[in-house]
């Protein structure tokens, strides 16, 4: 799995209320519609500026707070290819894998990337190339079954293809 796009930088503790405010989430199940409000309190206009394939690079504890799956879903709906962060909050991390949004834990990426840098990520090999600076960073690749879920575009597609749940966790 390779992802290539421009970097958008966010700080520490970007919680799910900042990703998508709770006040919007009850009204619709249309993620494209909801995505118009993504990050609006901290970065107005983000949903218009972002291009498919772009990559979010953030600090620690990305996605803390609520269990709302709308948070990774709106990021995916904007076409964001991956989120790279120093660390992730637990529920957000699970949700992202489940819906097929690659989440990469890489402590060094935040300082090695400037907003707008062109990045290329090899999810299986655990490599981030900063094409703008020429620097290469390594990260610990995700467990194999998570990569398999990502490749299928999420756990729902995965289960449809492989039929069983045990497979998802133990294979």
């Amino acid at each position: 799995m390779r992802i290539k796009g421009r970097a958008w930088k966010f700080g520490d503790d970007i919680n799910t209320d900042l990703i998508i405010a709770g006040k919007y989430k009850y009204d619709t199940l249309d993620m494209k519609e909801l995505a118009k409000h993504a990050f609006e309190a901290i970065r107005p206009g983000f949903s218009d500026a972002v291009k498919p394939g772009d990559i979010i690079v953030a600090g620690k504890n990305f996605g803390s707070g609520s269990s709302r799956e709308q948070a990774p879903l709106v990021i995916k709906a904007l076409g964001i290819g991956a989120v790279v962060a120093k660390s992730f909050a637990r529920i957000f991390y699970r949700n992202a894998i489940n819906i097929g949004l690659p989440v990469i834990t890489c402590e060094k990426a935040y300082d090695a990337v400037t907003e707008g840098d062109e990045l290329e990520i090899d999810v299986e090999k655990g490599i981030i190339k900063n094409l703008t600076s020429g620097q290469t960073l390594g990260f610990r690749p995700l467990p194999e079954f998570m990569i398999r879920i990502l490749k299928e575009g999420g756990i729902v597609n995965y289960l449809k293809k492989y039929g069983g749940f045990e497979i998802a966790a133990e294979r």
Binding site: S67, R68, E69, P72, I91, R94, N95, N98, V156
Partner: peptide, 18 residues
């Protein structure tokens, strides 16, 4: 523990989680 909607979907269907 708290989970997102898709995890809950899987649990509603299969009664288990990882």
């Amino acid at each position: 523990a708290g989970f997102g909607s898709t995890d809950i979907t899987v649990m509603m269907a299969y009664g288990k989680t990882w």
